[in-house]
Simulated assay, not measured.
Amino acid sequence: MTPTPPAPHTAKVQEALAARDALATALSRAGIQLPAMDIRTPWADDREAEGQYALVHLGVCSAPVALMLADVITKGIAG
């Protein structure tokens, strides 16, 4: 994976941006905020590689935030 910022005009990057935003909104509604969420690509330049997706990078979180995530997921499963 390359740490270079992805080109925002590619379809797969747009898809990843939409997914990141949807996840951030859902987490926010659950009272959870991750310190860093960004998009990364497994390709080295602005050309999409066929069969590869841009990735939503969730970064790192503290133990309390990880426990909050686990709790929200568990409650969702128990539904």
Rank of each mutant, 00 (worst) to 15 (best):
Met1Leu: 09
Thr2Leu: 04
Thr2Phe: 11
Pro6Cys: 15
Ala7Thr: 11
Ala7Arg: 09
Pro8Gly: 04
Pro8His: 02
Pro8Ala: 09
His9Asn: 15
Thr10Pro: 01
Thr10Asp: 07
Ala11Asp: 15
Ala11Met: 05
Lys12Pro: 02
Lys12Tyr: 03
Ala16Thr: 01
Ala16His: 02
Leu17Asn: 11
Leu17Pro: 00
Ala18Tyr: 02
Ala19Val: 10
Ala19Trp: 00
Asp21Phe: 02
Asp21Glu: 15
Ala22Pro: 01
Leu23Glu: 04
Leu23Ile: 11
Thr25Ile: 07
Leu27Phe: 08
Ser28Asp: 15
Ser28Thr: 13
Ala30Glu: 15
Ala30Pro: 05
Gly31Pro: 04
Ile32Lys: 05
Gln33His: 13
Leu34Ser: 04
Leu34Phe: 06
Leu34His: 06
Leu34Tyr: 04
Pro35Met: 07
Pro35Thr: 07
Pro35Glu: 08
Ala36Leu: 12
Ala36Val: 11
Ile39Asn: 02
Ile39Gly: 04
Ile39Cys: 03
Arg40Lys: 12
Pro42Asp: 03
Pro42Leu: 06
Pro42Tyr: 01
Trp43Lys: 06
Asp46Lys: 07
Asp46Met: 04
Asp46Phe: 06
Arg47Phe: 06
Glu48Asp: 14
Ala49Thr: 13
Ala49Ser: 10
Ala49Asn: 10
Glu50Tyr: 10
Glu50Trp: 08
Glu50Asp: 15
Gly51Phe: 04
Gly51Ile: 02
Gly51Tyr: 01
Leu55Asp: 10
Val56Leu: 00
Leu58Asp: 03
Gly59Val: 03
Gly59Trp: 05
Cys61Lys: 06
Cys61Trp: 07
Cys61Asp: 12
Ser62Val: 03
Ala63His: 10
Ala63Gln: 10
Ala63Ser: 11
Pro64Ala: 05
Ala66Ile: 01
Met68Cys: 09
Ala70Pro: 00
Ala70Gln: 14
Asp71Asn: 13
Val72Gln: 10
Val72Pro: 02
Val72Trp: 02
Ile73Asp: 09
Ile73Leu: 12
Ile73Lys: 08
Thr74Ser: 15
Gly76His: 09
Gly76Gln: 12
Ile77Glu: 13
Gly79Thr: 09
Gly79Arg: 11
